[in-house]
Nucleic acid binder design. Sequence first.
RNA 1: GCCGGGAUGGCGGAACUGGUAGACGCGCCGGAUUCAAAAUCCGGUUUCCGAAAGGAAGUGGGGGUUCGAUUCCCCCUCCCGGCACCA
Length: 816
Amino acid sequence: MSTPYQPEIVEKAAQEHWADVRSFEVSEDPDKEKFYCLTMFPYPSGKLHMGHVRVFTISDVIARYQRMQGKHVLQPMGWDAFGMPAENAAIQRGIPPAQWTYKNIDDMRGQLKRLGYAYDWTREVTTCRPEYYRWEQWLFTRMFKKGLVYRKNAVVNWDPVDQTVLANEQVIDGRGWRSDALVERREIPQWFMKITAYADELLSELDAMPGWPESVKTMQRNWIGRSEGVELSFDVAGEGEPLTVYTTRPDTLMGVTYMAVAAEHPLAARAARDNPRIADFIKECTTTDAAEATLETMEKKGMALGISAIHPLTGEEVPLWVANFVLMSYGTGAVMAVPGHDERDWEFARKHAIPIKQVIAPADGTTIDIDEAVFTDKGVLVNSGEFDGLSSDEAFNAIADRFEQTGRGGRTVNYRLRDWGVSRQRYWGAPIPIIYCDDCDAVPVPEDQLPVVLPENVEFTGVGSPLRDMPAFFEVACPRCGKPARRETDTFDTFVESSWYFARYACPDNSDSMLDERARYWTPVDQYTGGVEHAILHLLYSRFFQRVMRDEGLTDVSEPFTNLLTQGMVLKDGAKMSKAKGNTVDPQELIGKYGADTVRLFMMFAAPPEQALEWSDDGVQGSYRFLKRFWNAVVEHADRGPVQPLDPDRLDESQQELRRKTHLTIAKISDDIGRRSSFNTAVAAAMELLNAINKFDDDSAAGRAVKHEALESVVLMLSPIVPHICHALWHELGHRTPLIDQRWPDTDAAALAVDMIEMVVQVNGKLRARVSVPADADNDTVQQLAIADDNVKRFVDGKDIRKVIVVPGRLVNIVV
RNA sequence: GCCGGGAUGGCGGAACUGGUAGACGCGCCGGAUUCAAAAUCCGGUUUCCGAAAGGAAGUGGGGGUUCGAUUCCCCCUCCCGGCACCA
């Protein structure tokens, strides 16, 4: 009786072997082709969840596959350890955020090890450690000196009851999640990084990134939102300062019938001084959260200010409105409104009985009724005086020229992208290295005083940051003049840590500089894998930081991630697994029941990596069943003793057939994993081959040799996905050297050759027969064979053959 | 609201460049084994008509291009991700 499959024993043995010989620890070797395989590092939230298991397994399969291709593979792991959940846990359980975080990291590291991932644990990075975040503090001070960071007022969600700033996530239906108070938009001074200085480069380089999904590049392009337009100024009656607006459609300028400013705009404030209704309206506008989705979906409201702007071309007066959909943080906080040719302006004008003027007519000469429907396409100018008859594009230039000549505006390039606000009014983050001095203003902390260490043993109440109650932290001397000064108590956005960790894995132990020569060897990341929810922010900030580091002379690399794979979520009952929904499945439990390999196999088999994966308990059992069949097939074969060497020239037909299947499968799986990242079909192909092996009943010496080759191939090809069972089965097949050091199998082209192929015959596009034809038959022969088929005759006889299409090797379509 | 993605048997999915729709797995049905059950093994399984051979329909809905469309184009519905302080 053979040994049954016992995952716990098999997996322990494999993991001990990898640990003993330090299989995954790598150092720089310029003679070898490197492959840097990285997963978006996890937030240490407590325990591993299925989403983690999925993304880490995908990455591990790629890393192990590349290693078998002979690459020198680095796969590190670390912790995105700052963030709000630690503060929440601290409030709920009275544990300091640091203590909670370190405990979670220890738990999750243990779970990762049990899953057998090929990580170089000597490079582990934890972002809440001063030895990590000191370098982003250092880079911030460098950026300060270059003018790449600056301070300005910016909007936050203010909870008037708890007297705290809330994250967008903490605002539920416009109310604070704990206080239930209506949230207000409030402006406070915050630090910004000038990502817009890199907008052009971040945009144009996307064209040279074939390794990224088109969808992600499109999202980034749209997010950066480069537009070419015209900036023009309107005089305001009774005001010295003109009102400047930006438009991409200066051709519609003659159709302006009103203008709108943001609630926070000085002109709105002026009008509110002697009009309490306007003051109330402005108050109402700021009683909302700051999320763009909220502002874009709420009812469009506005109020006339009783102030007029002067149309810069006609001199006519147009009324000025304050509107809740105009944002102070976008552009100038003011827009010109052309209701005839802009959807939102049209609806607003209809609602408030503002005149709608048609100034663009369709280019094809059709007439339209502008009071019935808005017309947003480009066309030909009408009702526009001297510009009548020009096309929209001609008018764009004519009007832009006019403003440039009069000095009242001109062509500008505008970006939707805004500078990155990095200040957070929270405790559990990296301190922003700034000291405020009454005389010297904001002074960056000098390099020799870094890091600014976050005190870890704190009393955490949840109302405001504890740093504000710690004079020992914030009472400092001004680094420039030595007078008493105050340290910044805001911390960095946690996206700052995740914007450069990938580079730090190359040299996590360097205490003298942010990066060193080792980073030049390992970066850029060859394969980056993570959730599609990071398609814009994290990936764009990382691309920005990489360039800042480049311009600081730390690296020559501009793009941090050469190839990107965005994996889908893990769902159960059609919804994302989450504690709140109570539909989570604990990976630990499943590993205990079936072993890590079964969980890994199911994750890779159940869905393509980019798509959402629907959890299925039955599916996991199916994966377990497959591994048992796999185990038994190899063990039973091995139990029959050693095999003779394979002689490919002396095989009978069924032996040739199995050998052909083996090499077809090698070609298929190599392509699926290596080129397509299509792991689910790779597993399916391996299952098919194993089914063929199990049906192959031939105990002759040649038969056993063919079977041996087939089983070895399956073991090698499944090893990136289920490395533990394959490690054991490789030994079972008689090998002394461990599987982890084996190369990927090669396809033998000679084994793929066939004499006859099956072709499909269609009549008028409908499948009518299958015919067997010689592989080298020409089109005429194929056509004759197809028409000779009895069932084909039934549909062709008595009709005229109009056309015959032969797709070589595939099908014949007879059109009658 | 805006940007990106998705929809295929009872279920997860396959069909890669416009060329056999439903690979592989789950579930279910039937059989073998068993005192019995579990486990395992063998066979079947899109729907409808038919004993079968075979035929008809069929990839979210509507239209179009093509000898041929799950695949390309237009319109629509629903679902998911992101929207700058969740990570």
